[in-house]
Computed example of a mutant assay.
Amino acid sequence: MENDGDDGRDDWDDGGADWNDEGSEQFEWSLEDVPLSGDAEATLERIEWLGELLDEAVPVPGTDYRVGLDPILGILPVGGDAVAALISLYIVGEAARMGVSKSKLALMISLVAVDAVVGSIPVLGTVFDAVWKANKWNVGLLKRELGV
């Protein structure tokens, strides 16, 4: 990774291969790809990135299925699902800031609430989190509401 010095980040590159070099389209882990400006396009890109991270960042070996950090955080007792829910609410907050209707916001909050409540059940909740893609759905709701 090259750094021209004007973005405030330190140079780092371990010189090794990426975590998955199979050639298929994979989730990008690079923080350089996270848009940090406040405009609507950058906000949409940022929440799409976050939705992917929470719901589909990691491929399940031997399958075409992907899980995200949400079920992985859910493995942590008590606080894991709470942290995942708070991160998920960031997407809802950005949707509210972008002018999504109250009915869509209520639906988005409901999706996150179901994810948090059912996801907090030991063992079953982790499996549920791997299937219930509330963040991807919320990003889709936002995009449809905005006509994107």
Rank of each mutant, 00 (worst) to 15 (best):
A116Q: 12
P35C: 04
P122Y: 06
I72G: 03
N3V: 15
L107S: 13
L69Y: 10
V131Y: 12
V118Y: 01
K104V: 14
A116V: 01
P71F: 11
G99Y: 06
I121S: 00
P35K: 02
V67R: 07
E145T: 09
D14I: 07
W29L: 13
D70R: 11
G51D: 04
D39L: 09
W137V: 10
V100C: 08
L54Y: 07
E94D: 06
D14E: 09
W12Y: 15
L73P: 00
R9D: 14
L105A: 07
D129G: 08
T63D: 04
E32V: 11
E25Y: 08
A113I: 02
I87F: 04
V123M: 10
E32N: 10
G8H: 13
G125T: 00
V148E: 15
S120Q: 02
Y65P: 04
A84F: 08
N3G: 11
P71G: 02
L54F: 08
E28A: 15
Y65Q: 10
V34N: 08
I91W: 00
T126N: 07
K104M: 10
D64K: 07
L107V: 10
V131E: 09
R46S: 01
K104L: 08
I47Y: 05
P59G: 00
W132C: 05
L36D: 09
D7P: 09
E48M: 02
I91N: 00
A84E: 02
V117W: 01
P61N: 08
L53R: 12
P59E: 03
D4N: 15
K102E: 13
D7K: 11
S30A: 15
P35M: 08
V112T: 14
D10K: 15
D33M: 12
L111E: 10
L69Q: 13
G38N: 11
